[in-house]
Simulated scan of single mutants.
Amino acid sequence: MKNYLHATPETGKQFYLDFHKKGEIVMLNLLKFKVTADYSALPALRPAETITGAAAYALYMKHTAPLLEQAGSRILFSGTGKEYLIGPEGEQWDAVLLVAHVSVEVFMKFAQSEDYLQYAGHRTAALEDSRLLPLSPSRI
Score class of each variant (00 low, 15 high):
Y4H: 14
H6R: 11
P9R: 02
T11E: 12
G12L: 11
Q14L: 12
F15I: 02
F15H: 07
F15V: 02
Y16P: 00
L17S: 08
L17H: 09
D18S: 13
D18P: 00
D18E: 13
H20K: 12
H20G: 01
H20A: 05
K21Y: 03
K22M: 07
G23N: 06
V26H: 01
M27G: 01
L30S: 10
F33M: 10
F33W: 06
K34A: 08
V35A: 12
A37S: 08
D38V: 03
Y39N: 06
S40F: 02
A41E: 15
P43L: 04
A44N: 12
A44Y: 03
A44K: 13
P47G: 11
E49K: 15
T50S: 15
I51R: 01
I51Y: 02
I51A: 04
G53V: 01
A56H: 03
A56W: 03
Y57H: 14
A58M: 06
M61S: 14
K62F: 06
H63F: 14
T64L: 07
T64H: 03
T64D: 13
A65H: 05
A65Q: 08
P66V: 09
E69C: 01
Q70L: 14
A71P: 06
A71R: 05
G72L: 11
R74Q: 14
I75P: 05
L76S: 05
L76Y: 06
F77P: 00
F77N: 06
F77W: 12
G79N: 10
G81P: 08
K82R: 13
K82P: 00
K82M: 10
E83L: 07
E83Q: 14
E83W: 01
Y84W: 11
L85N: 10
L85S: 13
P88N: 10
E89V: 09
E89G: 08
E89L: 12
E89Q: 14
G90R: 02
G90D: 08
G90Q: 04
Q92K: 14
W93C: 05
W93D: 06
W93S: 05
D94F: 04
A95P: 03
L98C: 07
A100W: 02
H101M: 08
V102M: 08
S103D: 09
S103P: 11
S103H: 09
V104Q: 09
V104F: 15
F107V: 00
M108Y: 07
F110Y: 15
A111Q: 09
A111G: 01
Q112D: 12
E114G: 03
E114L: 12
Y116H: 15
L117C: 11
Y119M: 08
Y119D: 13
A120H: 03
G121V: 07
H122D: 15
T124Y: 13
T124S: 15
A125N: 09
L127Q: 04
E128S: 10
D129E: 06
L132M: 14
L135Y: 11
L135A: 07
L135Q: 12
L135D: 06
S136K: 07
S136V: 12
S136I: 09
P137W: 03
S138G: 13
R139P: 00
I140T: 11
I140L: 15
